[in-house]
Amino acid sequence: MTAQIEPTSRYHLRVERVKKIVMEDTKLSDTKALALAVRMVHELDTVPEPVR
């Protein structure tokens, strides 16, 4: 039996939100959409605060 883990941190919530958007607009699988979402959130987190 496999239970799905609910995202608990703000980071995981952001990744899940981006993954959902990616999956709505592309034909990527769940795994690939998650990998892309992680990369996107990481890149956004590295943008300096004054630029955001």
Score class of each variant (00 low, 15 high):
5 I>G: 11
28 L>E: 02
32 K>E: 10
44 L>N: 14
29 S>F: 02
16 E>D: 07
40 M>A: 10
44 L>C: 10
26 T>Y: 08
49 E>Q: 12
35 A>K: 08
35 A>E: 11
7 P>C: 05
22 V>I: 08
22 V>T: 09
40 M>K: 10
32 K>A: 07
34 L>C: 01
20 K>T: 14
45 D>V: 04
38 V>I: 14
50 P>M: 05
37 A>C: 01
43 E>Y: 11
48 P>W: 07
38 V>Y: 04
31 T>L: 10
35 A>I: 02
40 M>Y: 03
19 K>Q: 11
12 H>D: 09
37 A>W: 01
49 E>W: 13
33 A>P: 02
8 T>F: 15
12 H>V: 10
3 A>F: 12
51 V>W: 13
13 L>T: 11
15 V>N: 01
38 V>R: 12
44 L>W: 11
41 V>H: 01
46 T>V: 03
24 E>K: 14
44 L>T: 13
3 A>C: 14
1 M>N: 11
3 A>T: 09
17 R>E: 08
3 A>S: 12
25 D>T: 15
11 Y>F: 11
7 P>M: 03
28 L>Q: 07
2 T>Y: 13
23 M>P: 00
19 K>D: 03
12 H>P: 00
45 D>Q: 14
1 M>Y: 11
21 I>P: 06
25 D>Q: 09
1 M>P: 08
20 K>Y: 07
21 I>R: 15
30 D>A: 11
49 E>L: 12
34 L>T: 09
9 S>E: 02
39 R>E: 09
10 R>Y: 00
34 L>S: 04
50 P>C: 02
39 R>N: 12
38 V>C: 07
13 L>C: 06
28 L>D: 03
17 R>W: 09
22 V>D: 01
50 P>N: 06
46 T>G: 03
39 R>A: 07
14 R>C: 05
28 L>Y: 00
15 V>H: 02
34 L>N: 08
13 L>Y: 08
23 M>T: 09
33 A>F: 01
7 P>G: 09
46 T>I: 00
49 E>K: 15
37 A>Y: 00
5 I>W: 10
34 L>H: 14
31 T>N: 13
42 H>V: 00
27 K>I: 06
